[in-house]
Simulated scan of single mutants.
Amino acid sequence: MTLQRVYLVAGELSGDILGAGLMRALKARHPGVEFQGIGGPRMIAEGMQSRFPLETLSVMGLVEVIKHLPELVGVRRTLRREALAWQPDIMVGIDAPDFTLGLEKQLRREGIKTAHYVSPSVWAWRQGRVKGIAQSVDGMLTLLPFEADFYREHQVPVAFVGHPLADELPLENDRLAARQALKLEPDAPVLAMLPGSRGNEVRFLGHTFLAAAELLCQRHATLSVVIPAATAQRHAEIQALLVDYPALASRVHLLDGQAREAMVASDAVLLASGTAALEAMLCHRAMLVAYKMAPATHWLAKRLVKTRWVSLPNLIAQQSLVPELIQEAATPDAIADQLDALLVDHDARTALEARFAAMHEGLQRDASRRAAEAVTAIAAGQPLEQHHGE
């Protein structure tokens, strides 16, 4: 089957990266294929006609979504109407499950094939959601092997495609070259700090991260702190926060993007939980994951989440490789103490970098190509068994 029209809806920057890779692979397989829906700058560069800005769907937390619900309902109604008028061969929701799965369910009822790229964390909490997912999608595309196992157990068609970031990032990287590119001292310690790509994350984590950095700079006289801002808006927000930390003025390098370069250049990484933790793992860097959210959201999450870990490196390894500090535990002092331990223990860092390199190799599967094959199979009504990740 040759695909002519694919409707894609991505919800945040990580989804934009995945969507752009999928689009490239689909174009290679189906020359002339057209794309509509919601995408970010990378997907737009690949030919997406995006109906709304990517940030429309980037709402963090259970409580925060409620505030934006009327707008989100209106956006979904518009997308449903336009997708039905356009009649794509398949609709693919990329992450943002609270939004995209509902749209997938509506379109599937109208006879449009649907797929979902990036599994929601049903294995961690609210496992009953898998019944709704089964009604919403003709196939699930997972990035990680333990996710695909869960769907097979629940008889949901699934393809483990691997993670595109694992394909994109090299198995060997050059810390010194990255430091030279960022104009950092070659022999001084470097901390990369990533407080999140969403506005709410910077609001909840920004001051805590900067206060921790200030403490670390007191302990390490030559430490440089590199902060890659995910967007121009995050850059402005972090710049505003830095006014309260004059002691960091000579130590902080605030970048526009360049997260990967910052991680590779670093000795250790401080970051919010999420895709950034996987990226740090794929850059083979020691890290500390810290996260804060609205108190009401955290109260709910504590009662719903059943997994032992929140960071992807720990979940993939199924052991505590990366320290995690969540909510009240994520204090500047606790963060500084954990990072200090990472910075001074060279042997532990070297061992962890080797472990991450091995995990990286296991996730390299040419994911975008596999995802395009799975999307084509779903659109054609073919089974996904051959895409299970032999």
Rank of each mutant, 00 (worst) to 15 (best):
M1K: 14
R5Q: 11
V9R: 01
E12A: 10
L13C: 03
S14I: 00
G19C: 05
A20P: 09
L26F: 10
R29F: 08
M43E: 07
S50N: 06
F52L: 06
E55N: 10
L57D: 04
G74P: 10
R80I: 13
A85D: 15
L101C: 07
L101F: 06
E104L: 09
K105A: 14
T114E: 00
Y117S: 05
V118Y: 00
W123E: 02
R126E: 13
S136Y: 06
E147I: 09
A148N: 03
D149C: 01
F150I: 00
P157E: 02
A159F: 12
F160G: 00
L165S: 07
A166M: 06
E168W: 08
L169D: 01
L176I: 14
Q180I: 10
A181E: 15
K183V: 13
E185Q: 14
A188R: 15
A188L: 05
V190T: 12
L191E: 01
R198Y: 07
G199A: 12
T208A: 14
F209C: 06
L210P: 03
L210I: 04
R219P: 09
H220L: 11
T222G: 11
I227T: 01
P228D: 00
A230Q: 04
H235S: 11
A236V: 12
E237H: 11
L241K: 07
L248C: 10
V252N: 02
R260A: 07
E261F: 05
A262S: 13
A265R: 01
T275E: 02
R285P: 08
M287R: 01
M287S: 13
V289M: 12
K292C: 06
K292D: 04
L300Q: 04
K302F: 09
W309K: 09
V310K: 05
S311L: 07
P313T: 04
A317L: 09
Q318L: 06
V322F: 09
L325R: 00
I326G: 02
A334W: 03
I335W: 11
A336P: 11
A336W: 04
A341R: 13
D345W: 13
T350H: 14
R355W: 04
G362L: 08
D366F: 00
R369W: 08
A371R: 08
A371L: 06
A372W: 11
H387G: 04
H388C: 07
G389E: 00
